[in-house]
Simulated assay, not measured.
Amino acid sequence: MYSSLFISHGAPNIILQDSLSKANIKSFARGLEKPKYIIIFSAHYVTNDLKIINYENNDLLYDFYGFEKELYEYEYEIKSDKSISLKIVKHLKENDINISIDNTRVNYDHGVWSCLSMMYDKLDIPVIQLSVPSSYTKEQLIDLGEKLAIFKDEALLIGSGGLTHNLSDMQVSDSIKTYAKNFNDEVINIINSGNQERLLEIAKTINYKQNHPRDEHFLPLFIIFGSAKNKKGKSFNSEFMYSNISMECFAFDLKD
């Protein structure tokens, strides 16, 4: 069985920088057994209902603005796979989860390729991207992860988002905002203990809204949490950027 990962992907230009997070993610990935394929959710692909990207003619989306010229010229080979995509669709439909191929979405957003390029210098396995369904409750996202867990015999499951994501309050500073640090520490405790009830409750707190004015960057964690066998995870990266952006990353079901 392969692991499930939640990765705080940060700003897209993290791939051009030397940072603790980039080094930790790359180092951690070296210790992972290579899967047959990757199933990934990104905070930058949100749809009302669950969808899977079209498996044909895949490439990169440069879905951001105001960054370095080199970032818009960055190349990274990444492809989906028809048979695997259809197998996932079939399995989820058989388990009463509605999903469809998104023919309007062919390419991978930066939440996918920036994350994976930190893990793998060269990617020679298929990457199957599913959307984050905004119509789902937190409980339904956990259930979706549980339904996908069967694929962990072959696949690495990844949720790409951010443990905190209040862009309007970030600053270039060495200090960490208290509300972000407290939230980060609370989630670490929840993941370490595998406490699903507390994870669901934290999404109802005022502190949650302060860290996630919009919650699309936190939602992939519920899916990944659901896919874990015993729900307990461990952090493999801890860093704050811009005073309130947590780069915390979690791994579930790591092999001893």
Rank of each mutant, 00 (worst) to 15 (best):
N211W: 00
P213L: 06
G145D: 02
K232R: 15
S243E: 05
A155S: 14
N192D: 14
D215A: 10
I245E: 05
K204V: 01
F151T: 09
N207W: 06
A228K: 06
G226V: 12
N211T: 05
I142Q: 02
F222C: 11
I191M: 02
D215M: 03
L254G: 05
F218D: 04
I206K: 15
I176N: 07
M170D: 00
R214I: 13
E239N: 12
L167W: 03
K234W: 00
D174Y: 11
A149E: 08
K147H: 06
K229N: 14
Q196M: 14
L144R: 01
F250E: 06
I202V: 14
Q140W: 03
A155N: 04
L148W: 04
G194L: 04
D169F: 09
Q196D: 02
F236T: 07
F225A: 03
N230W: 03
Y208H: 13
E186V: 09
D253A: 12
N211Y: 01
Q140Y: 07
F183Q: 02
F236S: 07
G162A: 13
N244Y: 05
R198K: 15
Y179V: 05
V172G: 00
N195Q: 05
D143E: 07
Y242C: 09
M241G: 03
R198E: 15
C249K: 05
L219S: 14
L156F: 04
K152N: 08
G145W: 10
I188Y: 08
F252C: 13
F225I: 07
M241F: 11
L163K: 09
I245W: 08
L156R: 03
F222A: 08
S168Q: 12
N237E: 05
P213K: 11
I150P: 00
E201P: 00
N237S: 15
